[in-house]
């Protein structure tokens, strides 16, 4: 029983980070119908920028902020320069555009920071542990989960309670009608992309101490986040969070009781199962369009 609880605790911790990644993906899919395959690399870019700031002697908080801002700017810039002009094109064209940007970012990071893995410092220790009953949680794990939950809460406040969030929801539903009300749809979309980039970078910064930083660090977490987004329903922000946590726990239990080697495969089983059984995901709206 304690063992199961331990698996669940570990699963929640990685699930929180999957949720952060999934939120970035869903945010963009909802508002601009773009599957952003460069999202993972934007996360890594944020972590690298934070690392450079740390090495330049900046305090931890300022370095992380720099990483977030940098990734946000890169994401918004990518939208303004590449995605928006291609917007008139096909879905396939957009997917290829984001894939191309992903490759470019990977190359750029390898060029600037090199391909060898680097340790990423964290103010939280992974040696110091808390014991809750029989369950052992390292400070780093607990801290990451807490940070992820706080970020999720902040995002939902932003989306539900602020004028910018309202404008984001409106633009996602009907960009033309939003423009007719004087809402600058392009700028709102750019802000959405920046926000997604910042969320991603925060996931990158939280994951880097665990995974060690290299240009391809986010490959696996990005795919997990993607699976979590599909599980929750590509359209739903709460769905992305629930999907992320569920996937994390499921994966941890699967690794504990079935096989560690096939742990990574589970997310693809999840995608296939969701597409077969409930294509709209847990929280997504069934695909209907009223004409």
């Amino acid at each position: 029983m304690t063992l199961a609880a331990q698996y669940v605790a570990n699963g929640l911790a990685s699930g929180g980070l999957y949720a952060l990644v999934a939120l970035g993906i869903v945010l963009l899919y909802r508002s601009s119908r773009v599957l952003n395959f460069a999202h993972g690399d934007l996360c890594t870019l944020g972590a690298f920028l934070a690392l450079s700031a740390l090495q330049a002697g900046w305090p931890y908080a300022a370095s992380v902020a720099a990483g977030l801002v940098g990734a946000g700017l890169a994401s918004a810039g990518f939208y303004q320069v590449l995605v928006r002009p291609v917007r008139e094109g096909t879905v396939l064209g957009l997917v290829i555009t984001t894939l191309g940007f992903a490759l470019f970012l990977g190359g750029f990071m390898a060029w600037v920071w090199g391909t060898d893995t680097k340790p990423f410092p964290s103010p939280m220790s992974d040696v110091r542990v808390y014991r809750l009953g029989g369950v052992v949680i390292s400070e780093l794990t607990a801290g990451s989960l807490a940070a992820a939950l706080v970020l999720v809460a902040l995002l939902s406040l932003l989306v539900q309670r602020t004028p910018l969030g309202l404008a984001m929801r409106a633009v996602a539903q009907n960009p033309v009608a939003a423009q007719l009300l004087g809402v600058p749809a392009r700028r709102v979309l750019a802000a959405t992309w920046a926000l997604a980039g910042m969320l991603g970078a925060s996931a990158g910064v939280l994951l880097a101490p665990v995974l060690l930083l290299d240009p391809f660090m986010m490959l696996d977490p990005f795919l997990k986040g993607f699976a979590a987004a599909v599980l929750g329903g590509m359209d739903s922000l709460p769905g992305a969070v629930v999907g992320g946590l569920t996937l994390g726990v499921a994966e941890s239990l699967f690794a504990g009781y079935v096989s560690v080697k096939f742990k990574a495969t589970l997310s693809f089983l999840v995608i296939v199962a969701v597409l077969l059984l409930k294509p709209e995901g847990l929280f997504g709206r069934p695909f209907e369009r009223r004409v």
Binding site: P163, L166, A167, R169, A170, Q173, N174, A177, A178, L181, V183
Partner: peptide, 12 residues
């Protein structure tokens, strides 16, 4: 905006 409330529609 069908998924926003009437008040939110006006607020926009």
């Amino acid at each position: 905006f069908p998924e926003l409330t009437v008040a939110e529609n006006l607020q926009l």
